[in-house]
């Protein structure tokens, strides 16, 4: 996590900053629970994607769900809760994060 404090000479007038730079900040280390994606059970309903607060559901070029972006995932578990797959064939399960 590189936090660089800029001086006044480097900053833009009005302290304007370029957009989307939060992507450099990794919030994945907040996680205590970890979602695990099981591709074979995924039906691509995108409910996890629609409800992920952290834009951490990874899609491939064909817009199929391929996994979780652990760089940003805070482990809230909404994806697991909203996943409509049946108990014995879950597409997302939660487990305790091991560090």
């Amino acid at each position: 996590m590189a936090i660089k404090k800029m001086g006044w000479k480097e900053l833009m007038p009005g302290d304007a900053i370029s957009g989307g730079t939060a992507a450099e900040f990794e919030t994945g280390d907040w996680r205590s629970e970890k979602p695990i994606f099981h591709k074979e059970n995924c039906i691509n309903c995108y409910f996890c994607w629609a409800y992920c607060p952290d834009s951490a559901i990874l899609l491939d070029e064909n817009k199929k769900v391929v996994g979780i972006d652990y760089k940003y995932c805070k482990g809230c578990g909404i994806c697991d809760r909203e996943c409509p797959t049946k108990k014995e064939k879950r597409a997302i399960t939660m487990e305790t994060e091991r560090k």
Partner: peptide
């Protein structure tokens, strides 16, 4: 909707499970 570009990136500091970014 999945074909659209995301207006928010990850890495923002909302609580885990926050509804506002949703």
């Amino acid at each position: 909707l999945v074909k659209k570009s995301d207006p928010l990136t990850g890495g923002h500091r909302a609580c885990a499970g926050c509804g506002a970014p949703i």
